[in-house]
Simulated assay, not measured.
Amino acid sequence: LVTHALLDGMTVYGTQLWLPFYKEAVGLASVFIIDPFYTLPLLLGLAAALVAKGNWGFKTLQLSLFVSSLYLVWSVAAQHWVEKTVQANLPESQAALLVTPAPFNTLLWRLVAVSDSHYYEGWYSLLADEPEAIEWRAVPRDPQLYLALKDHPSVEGLARFSDGFFQLERIENSVVMTDLRMGQEPAYVFRFEIGRLDASGALIGPVERAPVARPPLEDGLAWLWQRLWGETALDLIDWRAAKGT
């Protein structure tokens, strides 16, 4: 149980390790929530232990735990190196930076930089990219809308939960808030309609999940493979547009 909580603490959402003394979540964001390079050694070690005779089963489990733990250490080191490397190439020098691994690996890293006026998404492959060649997709933010609504409980809560990596936008008469940490532009896991603006500018109505248009899984996996090896420098949006999908 303890190791599971510690592993959760290495994902982008983290877990509240220090309750009841400290309620904020601890999240290093050095591994994706599903990573076969961490899980497979443990599964192989368990399978071998079940069929091994004598002391080999215990030794196999020890080895698998060592390999998977070493992978976690690698993930932290790789994340730290990417973060230090990218800091000198931010689109805005004062932007807050989030570095998280792409799905299922720790060789391709997703970069999110947030300032008051914009947020930016970029990608960095340890196998193929140069820091100065990072291509950032810029998306405008609405700082005036946030200033007007920042004390609303739902806005304040999600802003705190997302560690400031959020988008708040007005779509027609609705206010939509997105956690930028999980997913990629424009398909994010947590996207909410906070409410609707009445004539006075106040938010009314319940909080609801906002619809998200997700690309087909096969497109996402194909792009991930090509981006990892440097076969494309495009992000998923431009890659799908070039492909005509």
Score class of each variant (00 low, 15 high):
D8E: 14
G9W: 03
T11L: 04
T15C: 12
L19H: 11
F21P: 07
F21K: 15
E24T: 14
E24V: 08
A25R: 10
L28W: 13
L28T: 06
A29Y: 02
V31P: 03
F32Y: 14
I33Q: 11
I33K: 13
D35C: 06
P36M: 09
P36F: 11
F37W: 14
Y38C: 11
Y38N: 05
T39Y: 13
P41K: 08
L42I: 13
L44H: 02
A47R: 05
A49E: 04
A49I: 09
A49S: 08
V51I: 13
K53I: 09
K53R: 15
F58N: 05
F58A: 10
F58P: 00
K59V: 14
K59W: 15
L61A: 05
L61F: 00
Q62D: 02
Q62R: 06
Q62P: 02
L63D: 10
S64K: 00
L65I: 13
V67N: 10
S68T: 12
L70S: 15
Y71N: 03
V73T: 11
W74S: 15
K84W: 02
T85P: 05
Q87I: 12
A88C: 01
N89A: 14
L90F: 03
L90D: 02
P91A: 02
E92N: 06
Q94C: 01
A95T: 10
A95R: 00
L98N: 02
T100I: 06
P101L: 03
A102Q: 14
P103V: 05
T106P: 00
L107E: 13
L108H: 07
L108A: 13
L108G: 04
W109N: 02
W109L: 13
L111T: 00
V112T: 15
V112H: 02
V114G: 09
V114R: 04
S117R: 13
Y120C: 06
Y120A: 04
E121P: 04
E121K: 01
W123V: 07
L126H: 05
A128G: 12
A128S: 13
A128M: 05
D129I: 03
E130M: 10
E130G: 00
E132F: 08
A133Y: 01
E135R: 15
E135G: 12
R137H: 15
A138Y: 06
R141M: 07
D142G: 02
D142P: 08
P143C: 10
